[in-house]
Each structure stands twice: as C-alpha cells, then as structure tokens.
Design a protein around this nucleic acid. Structure first.
Length: 437
RNA sequence: GGUCCCGUCGUCUAACGGUUAGGACACCAGGUUUUCAUCCUAGUAACAGGAGUUCGACUCUCCUCGGGACUGCCA
C-alpha cells in the first residue's frame, strides 16, 4: 500500500475515445503498480453538453476494459459549493477578482477571474516530459466562475483534486498549459501541488490527434467489432510505453509489474489498426479452449443458429480458433455447419465449380463419400489421396470445399466433411452438381 | 502571430558516446499445407538537415526545417 492517489477525470460530453481511455489505462496501471488508489471523477460541469447517457457509456467502457476504481464515483457537480467557497477565499486574499466581460457567444456579464503573477517563472518536473517552465507573464488571467455563477473547469478541477487527495495527475498533453495555471491555484489555496505526468496524444492515420474536437474513435466501436478488451488494452499500452525488452503481448499481471510512468514516451504515437488486428488475433489464438467455446456458442446462438447436441465442437475449435481474428468472424465462418441457408461465394463457385467435368466429378465423389465408412477426416483424406494418385489433391479438394461450404477457403476440408456428416456432404455435392446442369 | 513541447524503418519502438542501428506490425520472396490461417526461413526499409563538442555522436550543445499543444464564460 502506498499513499499514491490518481484519478481519471473525463468530461462526459461525448463518447469516450481511445486517446481518452489510454489516459485511464495509464492511471490505472500506475495505481496498481504502486499500490495506490485509482479514482474516477466525472467532470460534468458543462451542463449543456454532459448527458447521463454519455456517463453510462463511460462506465460500460471502463468495465469492459477491466478498469476498476477504488472509491465511489466523484461527480464534479456535487462539489460546486466547495468550488465557490474556494473562489471566495481567493477573492478575499486578492487572488481573484470580478470583471465585466463578453463571451465568445455573446453573453455579457460579470465573471470571476483568477489573477496570475505578473513576474517570475512557474515550473514543474513532469514525470514524462521532464522539466517544464514558463514565464508567469506569458499566462493571462483566466475566468474561474461564469456570469451565471457556476464554477469553471480550472477551479473545479483543482478543488476536486485537493478534496480527493490526488497526488499524481496523469492526463493528456493538451493540458500542459493548464497545468501552469493550476499550479498557481493549488499554491494560492495553500494546498500541496501534485506531481504531473502529461501523456502525448494518439494521432489517427492522418496524423491528427484523437480528441473531443474531432469526434473520434469511440471505445465501444472496438467492442462491437469483436476486439477483445485485453487486446485493445495491451495495444493502447504499447502506444507510448514498452516493458524494456521485446515482449509485446503481456498479461495484466506483467503490465502491472512492469509499468513505469517514467518510461512513457514524450512523442505522439500514430494508431495502427493493422497492429491492433494482429494483436487481437494473438489474444484469440492464445485464449483458453473454454473461453473460445463460450464465445463460439454465444455468437453462433446470437446468429440464430443451433449447434446439434452430437456435434464435435472440439474438432471445430481445433480447426477454427487459429483462423479467427475477431470474435465477430465466427458465425460467418461456421454457419454452413448448422444451416443449409448459408452464404455462397459466387467467385469461388465461378472458379472451382463452373468448369468442364466438375459436375461428373462431384457426382462421382458423392457416391464415394456415400460408401465411406467410417465417415472420418482420415478416411476422406485417404479416399481423395487414392484418387489423386500422388499428383496433388487440388482438383478434387477445391470443388468439394465450394460444394459443401459455399466458400473458397476455411478449415481443413476433411475435418469439415467429418463435422458436416455423411448425409450433408453427399446431399450438398449432389445439389451442387445439379445446379451445374 | 505568441508561448510551450516534440523529431530513429510506412507504423509502434530498442540502442550507460564506441552496434553490420535491433525487435514488432505491415509489405515482399520462399518452405510446410488440400484452401485459408498458423508455423519456419530470407528480404526491402530509419537516425529530418546543418554546424559544433569529442579520439569517436542516434545519443551532448546550437541553428534551420518539420510536426503538435495551448492561446474560451469547453474540459
């Protein structure tokens, strides 16, 4: 146990995106690594844009990724009284003042401004960026209370951090300028200044940062596309950090053990969907058989298909797991086992079936399969091998595959036939032949 | 414009000032295989540029160029 306390403090003004959630991941990992506390604070002071739906989406995404927090959620709007008390305090000591102003959108009224020092240097040692310094004169006074009397981000954020006892603030790079301002507020309020760690942005394929400013990659999207939370978590972690050796696929335990904020990169990282896909495949290939079976049965059922009680699911899993890159791919890749109403790839039909002699070939094969006993993968392979006389099984294998599965590629053909069973294989071969007439 | 930050293969990255600049993804060639996937082997590809400091610079300093953040009664 340490007394380190970190927080993830998103504003629920939109769907949480990957840049955002990476900050949560780094905070969570830092807390778990140091034995500190990870807190969640919902910064909902922007009443016009914060919605309960967005808050719920945020919770769902965090739970999906396994980002559990150690204390009840702290809502910024519940602490408004304290924010304003602190403003009064600042006014009383001359660090804040009221002024008549007109906002961007034309509202005119009296706001409270925080007074910045007019000389000196504000500096801090950023855990990831190193020493940071800025002349106080380069920072303008800024508003902390709106003309309607509500507290603004800067004061609310700092007061909440004080009230929650936050010791380390790990947040996006886009906050560095705010940090110089916030440090002054902490000091004025007589509170200890927390340690800071500013994370670089994640940029998209166009090199532009994912931020709330450009409606970006929503975390839930990845969930819907069939990514594993572990894979997304792992990939996002690697965007700006590495364990110091060549390992890339890490268990949660390894991540917690090895994570160090000091080793986080300063430079922005580009999000590479291809590598995420690869990593997702790695996680699926490494998943336990039970996990895979569970996902498979769940997704096949969700697709409206029923797996017969006597179906050799283990054989299918042996064949299919290594070929699965997304959970979502599963139903499409095995639907033909469970229904006769499956998709047929016209290109494959064109290439493998619509050729001279294929019709007779299929009919002949149907007869041979019909006589095959036992109807196993090994027996089927032996049968075709004999037909091919060592010249390659391609001419037999390809038409069979397309005829019985409607696809040009997939799991091992003979395993496929065994799984389908004699009746279906024979029937589909004859049906395909009939359609070639 | 101003202030602050950053700059190694296409991408993510490694390299106590001394390496043929390493790994991963992607790409590509070959092998294994009935297809696909897996797996194995090989390959293409980077220190932004220029000055210094040094016996020696990807590593240190400066300049240039390039990129980003901020510059709200948003957070």
């Amino acid at each position: 146990m340490s007394d380190i306390r970190v927080r993830f403090a998103p504003s629920p003004t939109g769907k949480v995106h990957i840049g955002n959630i990476r900050a949560a991941i780094y905070n969570w990992l830092y807390a778990r690594h140091t034995g500190g506390k990870f807190l969640l604070r919902v910064e909902d002071t922007d009443l016009e844009r914060s919605t309960p739906e967005a808050i719920q989406v945020l919770f769902d995404c965090m739970q999906w990724l396994g980002l559990d927090y150690d204390e009840p959620v702290f809502y910024q709007t519940k602490n408004v009284k304290r924010h304003l008390e602190c403003v009064d305090k600042l006014m009383a000591m001359g660090r804040a003042y009221k002024v008549e102003r007109t906002s961007r959108d034309g509202k005119t009224g009296e706001v409270v401004m925080f007074k910045m020092p007019k000389e000196g240097v504000i500096e801090f040692d950023d855990i990831v960026k190193g020493h940071m310094s800025k002349k106080a004169e380069d920072i303008q006074d800024f508003a902390i209370v709106r003309s309607d009397g509500s507290p603004i981000f800067h004061i609310a954020n700092v007061v909440d951090d004080i009230d929650q006892g936050v010791t380390h603030i790990i947040r996006g790079d886009d906050h560095v300028e705010n940090t110089f301002k916030h440090i002054e507020i902490f000091r004025a309020l007589g509170a200890p200044v927390p340690k800071y760690g500013h994370l670089s942005m994640i940029v998209n394929q166009q090199g532009k940062p994912y931020s709330k400013r450009d409606g970006a990659a929503f975390v839930g999207e990845y969930r819907e596309q069939g990514y594993l939370p572990e894979a997304l978590f792992n990939y996002l972690l690697l965007l700006g950090w590495n364990p110091g050796d060549d390992r890339e696929v890490l268990t949660r335990e390894e991540m917690i053990k090895l994570f160090e904020l000091e080793k986080v990169h300063v430079t922005a990282a580009m999000f590479d969907p291809k590598k995420l896909q690869w990593m997702n495949g790695e996680y699926i290939h490494r998943a336990s058989r039970d996990t895979y079976r569970e996902e498979l049965t769940k997704r096949v059922a969700a697709a409206g298909l029923t797996i017969p009680a006597d179906f050799n699911l283990d054989l299918l899993i042996d064949q299919l797991q290594i070929r699965t890159k997304f959970w979502n791919d599963i139903p499409g890749n095995c639907a033909f086992f469970f229904t006769d109403d499956y998709a047929v790839d016209a290109k494959a039909v064109e290439k493998r079936l619509k050729k001279d002699g294929v019709k007779d070939l299929l009919l002949d094969l149907a007869d041979r399969f019909e006589k095959l006993a036992p109807f196993t993968a090994a027996a089927g392979e032996a049968m075709v091998k004999e037909l091919s006389q060592g010249n390659g099984m391609g001419p037999w294998v390809h038409p069979i595959r397309v005829a019985v599965s409607g696809r040009g590629e997939g799991i091992g053909l003979f395993e496929m036939c065994e799984l389908l069973g004699k009746d279906k294989v024979v029937a589909r071969l004859r049906k395909a032949a009939a359609e070639l007439a």
